[in-house]
């Protein structure tokens, strides 16, 4: 399976954010998007996630499951916000997303307890999500990537609010996903500690 972007450009309001971005990612490939604030990293990820319409260009999957209409249906998106409810317990949050998202063809998610263990927070899934610290909340949001299987992960500043230990743990999750043949596109300030990756430098667009 390959994810292909051809000549993507996007605008917000009147302003063109980026122009003519192309890349091709195969199984096990990662793309790290770097650049200063406001250079369009988040916008690019939101376009890839289907949340913003691209001004021009095409995004498609080659050799994927037949019944998929858009690449974003095969994608996990981890944005700045965690997409978890403060009022519900961690278990309720995770199992909701597990049931609601379901698994993409070609893999299956792990159960909630195993996912919590994978992010190093086993044993606190009965607590309301709001009681967790910011770093713990971020880790639980990553556990969400594991409970439902998606071949493509779109990560927007995934390691914000994480300490060095959690950083390493996250690098291990990412590496495991790549070894299973996944695709990762991550926007970040700091290096993720990955081996072989493509990188895309966003410079910001000036008129």
């Amino acid at each position: 399976m390959r994810l292909l972007a051809e000549g993507l450009s996007a605008r917000r309001g009147e302003d063109l954010i980026f122009n003519d971005i192309s890349f091709a990612l195969g199984e096990g490939d990662a793309l790290v998007v770097t650049g200063p604030n406001g250079s369009g990293k988040s916008t690019l990820l939101r376009v890839l996630a289907g949340l913003l319409r691209a001004e021009s260009g095409r995004l498609r999957i080659e050799g994927g499951p037949a019944e998929i209409a858009h690449p974003y249906e095969l994608s996990h998106y981890l944005g700045h916000r965690n997409a978890m409810k403060q009022e519900l317990t961690v278990r309720e949050n995770l199992s909701f997303w597990q049931h609601f998202m379901g698994d993409s063809p070609g893999g299956s998610g792990i159960d909630v307890a195993a996912a919590a263990e994978a992010v190093g927070l086993a044993g606190i899934t009965h607590l309301p999500f709001g009681y967790l610290s910011a770093g713990q909340q971020r880790r639980m949001a990553m556990a969400k990537l594991l409970v439902a299987y998606r071949p493509i992960w779109l990560l927007d500043e995934p390691t914000a609010a994480l300490d060095a230990g959690a950083d390493r743990l996250f690098a291990a999750l990412v590496t495991a996903h790549l070894e299973r043949g996944g695709i990762i596109i991550a926007a970040t300030h700091q290096p993720l500690g990955l081996g072989s990756t493509q990188s895309l430098q966003m410079k910001g667009f000036t008129h």
Binding site: R46, L51, E73, S75, G79, N82, F100
Partner: peptide
């Protein structure tokens, strides 16, 4: 929308 869940709801099959 505030906690980001809307993004994921929009993305599903």
């Amino acid at each position: 929308r505030e906690d980001g869940s809307l993004d994921l709801l929009l993305m599903q099959e």
